[in-house]
Design a protein around this nucleic acid. Structure first.
Lengths: 94, 94
DNA sequence: GCATTAGTTCGGTACGCAGCAAACTAAAAT
DNA sequence: ATTTTAGTTTGCTGCGTACCGAACTAATGC
């Protein structure tokens, strides 16, 4: 991966975190200390389920969250290891 | 500052870093280990001076960089202290 | 005082994205 | 097999912003 591509990647990560509702999703999940469904999160933040799904996707793309499907519900959870491993690495890189 | 405002603030910081050219500016400055003018940076990144000025502003607003005016040139530099102090704080907050 | 040289601001364009409702998909339960 | 219930995808709208060149501002130096 060259520098150009790496900048793009890092920017993508920051971008994913540069949205108040996505930060709220992360905090809600972290504080709940359990998996939650899109619906639950949506009610908590007063936004539609489609928007929540949209944000979930962004967080999943950067590897910050996991999904686990049970019955027809997809439970979202924070991938703590990724969370703690990646970000300090970015700082170091910069 | 309530949670709502804090999320907004944190999002603003991430937003400022969520742009490849701004990351490049930071790296160029860091590697040069000296102050540089808008013009110099612009040539380095092949973007116009107005765009560089625009990005400088964004970085200054989150306190990541300093400007120091000498003659008619404004030299930009990384505020290293801020850089090392703020970001780990954000991670901790999350 | 005038020309030069830097940065900033302004008008405008193009693209991206957050948000919604509605349509669609997939699985479970009955 | 049909109904229900969750998530995803698909238009669509509105707003934000990266980018440029041109106009403007401010200070230097002759």
């Amino acid at each position: 991966m060259n520098i150009e591509q790496r900048d793009q990647k890092i920017a993508q990560i920051f971008k994913a975190l540069a949205e108040p509702n996505r930060l709220k999703i992360i905090r809600v999940l972290y504080q709940a200390q359990r998996e939650m469904t899109c619906g639950e999160v949506g009610k908590e933040l007063n936004i539609s389920k489609s928007t929540v799904s949209y944000h979930f996707k962004a967080l999943r793309l950067i590897g910050l969250t996991n999904t686990r499907k049970i019955a027809q519900e997809k439970y979202l959870s924070i991938n703590v290891e990724t969370f703690q491993t990646y970000l300090p690495g970015f700082l170091e890189t910069l």
